[in-house]
Design a protein around this nucleic acid. Sequence first.
DNA 1: AGCACGCCGACT
DNA 2: GTCGGCGTGCTC
Length: 657
Amino acid sequence: MIAEIALPIPVSKTFSYSVPEHLCPIIKKFQRVIVPFRNKHTSGFVIDVEDASNAGLKEISQIIDFYPLIDKNIERLCYWAGNHYVTPMGIVLKYALPKYLKPERYLLSRFNCDCHYRLWESKKDLPFEKVLSLMGIEDVISHLQEKKVVLYDKFTKKAFTEDIVSQTYSKEGKRFLFLGAIQRRIKFYLNLMEDQINKGRNVLMLLPDYNLSGGFFYKILSEKFKKKVFWYGSSVSQNLRMESYFRARNETGNIILGNKSAIFLPIMNLSMIIVERHEEDSFRNESEFRFNAWEVAKKRAEIENIPLILGSVSPKIEIFKGINEGEYALIEDELPLLKNFYQIEINRKRFFSGSIPQEMETIIKDKDKSKKKTIVFTPRKYYSSHIHCINCGYNFICPLCASPLTYKKNEDRLYCQACQKDFDYRNFCPQCRSDLIGFFQFGVEFLEEMLKKAIPDKHIILLTGDSIEESKSLEIKSVHDAEIIIGTNIISKLYGIECDKLIFIGIEDMLSMAGYRAEEKLFQFLYNTLDALNPEAIYFFVDEKKGFNLEHFLYYKEFYIEELEKRRLAEFPPFKNIYLITIEKKTLNAGQRALNTIKQRIEAWGLKEYMKGPLYEKKKRYQWKIMLKDYDERIKDLLFSLYDIQDITIEVNPLHI
DNA sequence: AGCACGCCGACT
DNA sequence: GTCGGCGTGCTC
């Protein structure tokens, strides 16, 4: 027998191995195996088995899974995702079947015969993994076939079978959008879930993150559905992950929560998928297999013919398009209104040089006695993301990649966001030795410094993605004690914090930070923040020179119609898919050679007219980007054929362009 | 991906 | 002279 093995490497072909005699009876598609590759052993995935002579092939050395871990539906889902995101199957399966999935370790074996006493003394049911190694595969198979041994998992204690059994009942795979505020969404989700649980079905819910919205929903859901709520994903311990795995696969009446990888989880009686705040970029996996979990959720709901429910206050533009075209049914249509807001124009230059605008000081000082917090937003973390010498004009740039350096005041170090590396900071210009160093484009640390100077008696804390990472949740005392919170985009997820005043500083900068999705991202951030914080008054401090037009974001339908029209004219998503090819080489010559190869390849496929670029060149690292638009079905084949060129990545509908 | 091989420029 | 960085080819 010959097995086709997909290896988790960026190569768009599979490798054939011969199946050793003793493994022939148990080898199956989607088992993980260990194979010799080069001079090492690597794990891979069986994606096909055929009865053919195996002349001259290397042999599979070991089998990892006794049972294949995905069913027909997930198989279809993986093939769809591999094609859609132009990713080789080995890499797709690496994410769908992560290393930590080891069911055999958590399955217990109960013997109905006496023979196991030959193997051990204890009468306890042993882990299946142990039984496999003690008895050998052949003996285990015959015992299983003759029902002399039955398996159950240690969490649900229910019998384990190879196939994921699901009830059959009439299903309808419709798509819905619930457009409404957080409290209404919660109520809606709870009702839906209760109904499904009572019917003995499982619900999968995707959340944008584990620490903030994940924790918030976990708490609410577990209060209502005690011991029926499980998080599946890399944020929890191995044991909890495996518990969620078995609860989903082997038991009904559960709610499975997760962020990205959970979308590939086999689930028994799965009756609906809910995606909370599907528009969040955190659903996108940003390395290797660049999938977006909410898109995969949509496909999975389609494959399993079950409803997909999106809940949001700021859906993606493509959903708005989908509503107009009847692809989504709108359940509720009530957004938080932007009310009690004031736009104040300030001179940013003066602000940078250290004088806090009088209005800002007054607003922050004028605090009532309530426990409510004043929350201040700025889009940048750290102190300053643009440092230059005022004397000679030298810009502080990364010695490795030449992109602008950020100053971290708390650590007194320079930081390159692209390389994620730290560098020493000296208080003089490396070019002319002048000590006139100017900091521009300030972040949270700068604001903290200014506010502490102006209002020394208030308790101020900083909240950024980093600080949430460190503390793992908001259940830290300092957040509750704080009177003023200065934060970045994370403030749009601070559910349950009472806020009286919400102050935006530099929100207009977001328009130059997020590429073609900038306006959409700003809109979504704004409405999610209002939804989470429900502030009593809102202040926008914007630069008088930038001419920020808040009006544009006030009426959601008008906003979406206008934005959709721009996308249509530019032939961008959701109208056309974009494929971005990135080449990165260490030398100019090698870079140009690779670039030419790609260009020739595109030309040879007759698809040159759909090519745009190279878009830009990053100095020092020699990076180029080529954009292809999706006009021709052959584009996928062309893109897969580029996998034999080294140092390139292919991205479908990239977040940043 | 990650490793072996070969090229070329640097330097005890 | 030979050491190391970098590009290239290739993996059943």
